[in-house]
Design a protein around this nucleic acid. Structure first.
Lengths: 358, 358
DNA sequence: CTTGTTAAAAGGTACGTTTCTGCATGGTGA
DNA sequence: TCACCATGCAGAAACGTACCTTTTAACAAG
């Protein structure tokens, strides 16, 4: 059997479409991709034949030929042993969702990849670019990607002079300072911090901002650290913080679960929130709107970050950037709820009295 | 310039490695892939040269040649307008995480794709198989994938005779029945249900199981429905349920946020939990361990489901299955906490469920 | 009649692998 | 010596597409 008629197995290729339509391969390619100079009659005829045969172009062949795969890597640096322990779950989920949407809107898809440098995984997929969440200083994966000319944009300001194409981050210092001012305005005299032992940029910047603030207002720092990837350790650390002799009258928790942890610890010690203890934590979770009392949260706007990261990355891939690294700062959002408002006892919604009242 | 020396731009290819190592292309390929019959000396020599040149095989070329891309699609059927509104956030995140890990462990990576039938996205990526979460009856994307011979495994029993390669799901009927028995054992006389208006399998099976149970024990059904993708609607429906004249003394909420919604509603009506109202909701979130009081949850074991789905899919791709569709049922896990225990104030240990009851 | 111009379509090569087939070589048993 | 086989390696054909180059036809202008 000759090469033109040979394969009856498998899907229809561009050759089969060309033969069935009575035109050349080039014409089919041009017709389907909207290129070349073809009369509309030919174009629609080819399209119809392709449809009839159920033709789908081979992504692999196209990628091989054009050098563009339409795939973006998405990597989360992890702590601990499990491959994908995101401590900031809601944050990651929101960010990834926004990134996926933004990529899709521009014709790209996201591939989830491990942060480890397992070559056999990374090299088995053709990437046009990569999004890295919270890269470690001198991350080997990032370094190698950049060395191979693959654009890399990071969520979180990269440390260690990582040669990324660009990055997006919040102004963590400003956020923490503003938040502490807010607590002080609400009457806090000694503000405590629940922070992490890891060395990632977020933890580091937030903690130093706290220390600076303490220095400025002349307060002794009161903080507890714990490995952020261990949820139980968070509860323990929250307890430790409230058990100290120099117990704070307000606490900021850097991580998502800290709000409930601190609330539980406060209950154990008979502390009323917000009367005896003001509470704020950094979280994207909506549960803090309906805890008792609702807890003030700092939102890092993961959706805006995810969108921005992908836009920068795709711009770089498509050569729409100016070549310089792009740095973008996304403002944070302090969502003030009862837990950080000492004075106003007014609740926002008037409780509808039900039948059989208390 | 000839084809052998021509390209100094771009990365090193297998040809360059062959030339530098003084062997043929075949030998390089065999050496790196562990195939063929080569002495260890040659093998290691080739590997060393490849390393020195920073050689990375082209995934696109390999995929084109072998027909295997090592990529699995991951799709979530969505409700509402946004492309990725997962109502069960924690569930999806956990499931996706487990699926990603399992895939990675077997050398595959996951690509996140939209459930819409945008051809230009789906056909731009070469997939070896696809995981579909909660497919709609007669889902066109699934149908087309199967028609093209791509294995599809679904999380959630597919309705509408969808010709999937296999599926994994919980036994939702049994879970709901057991849960209702548990509430009845704790003293509930009238159990209410907070359910969804959507027609997905989970909602449908759970609701009918509830109705069956009511019929069996001779209780009038007491339930409220709301569009599960709207978080505010959940709070409203919870309120409505507790405002009814035939107010239930126990409620099961089908969706993740229902626990906090119901707790807030109970507070508004001055109902004590668990004394006046028993509460259970289906959730994977750990926040319910530290609410006041802690809330009993039904876990669907998303990690086990994600792992199982991927194993079945990869088995099918690699031809390790027997060809028949595979159906796997994952047991659920009722995590009993204070909110569903009227008598014993003692915590934590879940009562061993005997089949007896009554 | 020649030449230039343009539309329409065909030819053919390259993208970078994997892998089938085949060619030497040297050792072994008959 | 010869046939035979295992070993170690090379040649070359695909895989399916995109795109650069060329051909053909038609037609207007010189």
């Amino acid at each position: 059997m000759s090469r033109s008629t040979g394969r009856r197995l498998g899907r229809a290729g561009i050759r089969d479409v060309a033969a069935a339509a009575g035109v050349s391969i080039t014409t089919v390619s041009d017709a389907l991709n909207g290129k070349g100079r073809l009369p509309d009659a030919t174009r629609s005829h080819v399209r119809e034949v392709a449809d009839r045969l159920g033709y789908r172009p081979s992504a692999a062949a196209r990628t091989l030929r054009t050098g563009k795969s339409g795939l973006l890597g998405l990597t989360v640096t992890t702590y601990g042993d499990e491959p994908f322990t995101f401590t900031e779950f809601a944050y990651f989920a929101e960010m990834a969702r926004a990134a996926t949407s933004a990529a899709l809107a521009r014709g790209y898809a996201l591939v989830i990849l491990p942060a480890t440098s397992r070559h056999d995984v990374w090299s088995n997929v053709a990437l046009d670019g990569t999004v890295v969440i919270d890269p470690a200083d001198g991350d080997p994966v990032v370094t190698e990607l950049v060395r191979h000319g693959i654009p890399v944009v990071s969520d979180g300001r990269p440390g260690g002079a990582l040669p990324v194409t660009g990055w997006v981050d919040n102004d963590h210092e400003a956020a923490v300072l503003g938040l502490l001012d807010h607590l002080a305005d609400a009457g806090a005299r000694r503000i405590g911090l629940l922070t992490g032992t890891t060395t990632d940029t977020y933890t580091r910047l937030s903690t130093t901002a706290y220390l600076h603030w303490c220095e400025r207002v002349g307060q002794d720092p009161v903080y507890e650290s714990y490995p952020a990837h261990d949820p139980c350790a968070g509860a323990v650390a929250a307890d430790r913080l409230l058990a100290r002799p120099d117990r704070p009258d307000a606490v900021y928790g850097l991580f998502d679960p800290n709000g409930t942890d601190l609330l539980a610890a406060a209950r154990r010690y008979g502390l009323r929130v917000p009367e005896d203890l003001l509470l704020v934590c950094c979280s994207e979770s909506t549960v803090y709107a309906s805890t008792e009392p609702p807890i003030t949260t700092l939102s890092l706007k993961p959706r805006r970050i995810g969108t921005a990261v992908v836009q920068i990355l795709i711009d770089a891939i498509e050569g729409l950037d100016n070549g310089l690294p792009i740095e973008q700062v996304i403002p944070t959002d302090l969502i003030v709820r009862t837990s950080s408002q000492r004075r106003s006892a007014r609740t926002t919604v008037s409780p509808p009295r039900g039948p059989a009242g208390a």
